[in-house]
Structures are given as C-alpha cells and as structure tokens.
Simulated scan of single mutants.
Amino acid sequence: MTAVATQEKPSFSYSGRFAPSPTGPLHFGSLITAVASYCDAKAHQGKWLVRVEDTDIPRIYPGSEEHILTSLEAFQFETDAEIIFQKNRLDIYESVLDQLKKEGLIYACQCTRKMLGSNAIYAGTCRNLNLDFQDQAIRVKVKDQQICFDDRLQGLHCSNLQHDLGDFVLKRRDGIINYQLAVVVDDYLQGITHVVRGSDLLDNTERQIWLGELLGYPKLSYMHLPLAMNDQGQKLSKQNLAQALDLSKAPELLQQAIQALGQPNVDLDRPEVMLKQAVAQWNIDLIPHGQELSGRYL
C-alpha cells in the first residue's frame, strides 16, 4: 500500500515529539515524559514537536489545553514547529480511512460492548458481513503473525495481534477517531522518527506498527519510560487524582523530573538554562529500567 501523503512531510535524522491528551491538566508524570522526549531529541541534534491528542472531544477536560500550553511556556520548552491539535485534523484521518477501505483492509462492525461482554479478544464476528459503514464502528484486519520491536529501554517486545487482541477499532460508532489511527498518521505526517513516551503505552505499539505497515510508513524507534507512581502504587493520572503542575515551582519540579530519570544533577536556575544542562548531560543508560519508577510522587 502506498504511503498516504495528504500534506508536506518534513524529514530529519531525528524528530521527536511530546503528545499529551487534554483529559486533565499536566501532572508530574507528564513532565517526566516531556523532559525525556525533549532531552533525547536535542541530545541527538534533532527536532522536538508538540501535538495535542484531542480526538476524543467529549473527554477534553475544560481548560486542560490551555494548561498544557501555559505549562510548556512556564518550563521554557522550545518547540521546533507549530503545535498541532488533532481535533482540527479529522478530515485527514477520514481520508486515510477511505484509502484503507478501498484496499479492503477495514470493515464496519455492529458489535456493541454489551454484545462483546468481557471478551478481550475480538473474534472477527463482523469481518465478513460487508455491513454498511454508516453509523458503525470501523475495525482494521490483523493477521496471525508475530510483531516485534526492540524498545530502547524495555528491550524486545512482541505481540500476535490476532491472538492477543483481534481486529481493533479505528473509528468508534459515535464517530470518534481512535487514538491508534490518529497517532500513526500524525507521526508520519510530522516526520517523527523517535517516540519517547510512558510505558503505559507499550502495549499499543504493535498495533501502531501494524497500521504503519499497512499504510507504507517508515518504521519508528521507540523508548517507553518507567511510570511515576503515587503513594498507593497507581500511575499518576487524572483518574487517580494526580496534582496539576504548580507552575510557580517550575525550576524545582524540573529538577525533580531530571532526577527521576536518573540523570546527573543540574543547577537550580531558570528552566531554559536547566534544560540546556540536562541535554548536555543526557544519558539514557542512566534511566531506571522497568515499567515503574521506584519513588512515589504526587
């Protein structure tokens, strides 16, 4: 299948990104990801982009998109391109779905959550029913084959999507574009070469690799970071009531994030100066291994 090229795509030897979802204000776990993605990109003389992943419009938390932008400014991160919002790019994702439909790689699914029950693996019930696409969920076909990638931090990771998941949804019945489709398309169109993100997204990667292969996109490099946990042993998240970043304490929080990543200490200064020092000292071999950080955070 030929790569979709609906707009001009930049090309760099290293291009990374920070892609928060505005389901709540940025918290300390978000800051760790921002710092790691930024330092890794800049240490490789690469580009660092920001993308707000807001296709799930009903879940957008009021004021969170503004908080993301304010936080980036407070921590003095410098982006190398205009910040994009996925909710403004729905026509692009629809065009990719049209192409996948023409290739016979997706199909309409009428199965509801109630019908599926607790089944974690979709059995392909609607795969050969040739249902009309209108007002139905859209699933992509997977094959009985092993998909593997060598994560820069977590090592070899593999999945057989047919056995572990089944055909998965690219567009929900309510019209919401699924994260898996939007992230793959935008990583391609933004010229992303390296993905640095939390290990809670590790199991999404084989799905994204599969989609990228179907669309003829180049392979990406992945690094999944250990997660910051709260004192109950839960990952920091809006659902777990993680505190919003206190932007008045940006230098202190930035220093803590750098330390959480196992990096050499930086002098407490303006965030811009601290980030430059962190980039100069960046060493991924010092990042704690595993999928959780040992410390506890708010």
Rank of each mutant, 00 (worst) to 15 (best):
T2N: 08
A5R: 15
P10F: 13
G16T: 08
P22S: 15
P22C: 15
L26W: 08
F28E: 01
S30M: 11
Y38G: 05
G46H: 13
L49E: 06
R51P: 09
P58I: 11
Y61N: 15
G63C: 14
E66R: 15
H67M: 13
I68A: 09
S71L: 10
L72Q: 02
F77G: 04
D80F: 04
A81G: 07
A81H: 08
L90I: 10
V96S: 00
D98E: 15
R113G: 07
G117E: 07
A120P: 05
N128A: 14
L131W: 12
F133W: 10
Q136K: 15
I138Q: 02
K141T: 13
Q146H: 01
C148L: 03
C148F: 04
L153T: 01
L153F: 05
S159D: 11
Q162G: 01
D164T: 09
D167H: 07
R172W: 09
R172T: 03
G175K: 09
Y179W: 11
A182K: 03
V183K: 02
D186H: 03
Y188L: 06
L189M: 12
G191M: 10
D200C: 11
L201Y: 11
L201V: 11
L201T: 08
N204K: 12
G212S: 12
L215S: 03
K235F: 01
D246L: 04
E252K: 14
L253C: 05
L254C: 10
L254Q: 05
Q255G: 03
A260M: 06
A260W: 00
Q263A: 02
N265L: 12
V266R: 02
D267S: 15
L268A: 09
M274F: 10
M274P: 07
Q277P: 06
I287T: 00
H289T: 13
H289I: 02
H289F: 04
Q291E: 04
Y297I: 00
Y297G: 00
